[in-house]
């Protein structure tokens, strides 16, 4: 146990003397947590829409008004032919083209249905997907409004419908920062745990000090504990720092038991530290360790729920 004490003392001294590690541990999390969530935002506002209105009727104007007043769309062009609208898209001035064909109102009233044409610029995939989805929602609303007006006509008998409205329990307003901040915090913890542990042990291999340690009576498990405990403590500090930042900057306060978060984090860190240890046994140089850690980290991030929901994976990949 006494040798463990000296190992820990040495490890902490080295950590606090290494500006690179300190920077990685404290400044990186702060910056990532403050800047990344602002950027990593799936919410799309101001989708540029170009409208081709060949109908020029109350119904078509009502539809355009509804789209532009939704807050998600900016009317970037108003043309009367597709070619001009497409030019807008080609010059990246527009993300979506909505074409209202001539005789739209007439067909809608007479035949109870009418066709619209939507063309989406898919160069920015996320924008295109969400823009199209928003537009669909708006059109559905529009459709419903039109029909409600018609209910006044006694002869129209609406079929009773069941409507499903999802309500998000933990994130009522679908604020993406609420998703991203804790997500980024976990990724940070993983990186700090796995990267720093692996790099630290491999560094001793590179410098040759591990050979010296091998000939001393230090027991293997003491050496491993001496390496893991400091980074475990550091991980907990980073977690605390992250929770404070998310509270100050985003007002995210864990509703559940804070102790439980720390309990899970401590177990999670153990697993991650073990991973770092494993990497360090394979890698001979810090470069190798870095590459292996990156490789594994990519898998974790992609397989983790933060970006790709694991339930969306095919069963074979789980």
């Amino acid at each position: 146990m006494r040798s463990l004490r000296f190992l820990l003392q040495k490890e902490f001294r080295q950590i606090f003397r290494n500006p690179a590690i300190l920077r990685m541990m404290f400044i990186m999390p702060v910056i990532q947590l403050i800047i990344l969530p602002q950027v990593a935002d799936y919410e799309i506002r101001n989708v540029n829409i170009t409208v081709i209105d060949q109908d020029h009727t109350t119904y078509s104007r009502e539809m355009i008004r509804k789209i532009t007043s939704s807050g998600s769309f900016l009317l970037s062009g108003y043309h009367d032919n597709y070619k001009a609208a497409l030019e807008d898209v080609e010059h990246d001035r527009s993300d979506i083209i909505l074409e209202i064909p001539a005789g739209f109102e007439r067909t809608l009233v007479r035949e109870n249905e009418a066709k619209l044409f939507i063309a989406v610029n898919a160069i920015n995939g996320m924008r295109a997907n969400l823009g199209a989805a928003y537009l669909n929602t708006i059109l559905r609303d529009y459709n419903q409004e039109v029909r409600t007006q018609w209910i006044q006509f006694p002869k129209f008998d609406e079929i009773p419908r069941v409507e499903v409205i999802p309500r998000n329990w933990y994130n009522l307003h679908m604020n993406y920062k609420l998703f991203m901040v804790p997500g980024i915090l976990v990724v940070l913890l993983t990186m700090i745990g796995a990267f720093l542990t692996a790099l630290n042990i491999v560094k001793e291999k590179e410098v040759g000090t591990i050979e010296q340690i091998n000939v001393t009576p230090i027991r293997k498990h003491h050496f491993i504990l001496g390496k893991l405990i400091p980074f475990w403590v550091m991980g907990m500090i980073v977690l605390t720092l992250g929770l404070i930042i998310s509270r100050i900057f985003y007002g995210i306060i864990p509703v559940g038991n804070i102790g439980l978060i720390y309990l899970f984090a401590s177990v999670f860190l153990l697993a991650v530290l073990g991973l770092g240890l494993l990497i360090s046994t394979i890698a001979q140089t810090q470069q190798q360790a870095m590459l292996i850690a990156f490789f594994l980290m990519m898998i974790f991030i992609l397989m983790g729920d933060c970006i790709l929901p694991s339930t969306a994976c095919q069963n074979g990949h789980k």
């Binding site: 006494r2 040798s3 004490r5 000296f6 190992l7 003392q9 040495k10 001393t216 009576p217 230090i218």
Partner: peptide, 8 residues
Amino acid sequence: TFYAGIYG
């Protein structure tokens, strides 16, 4: 201190 310490 470190080496002396781990040698007990």
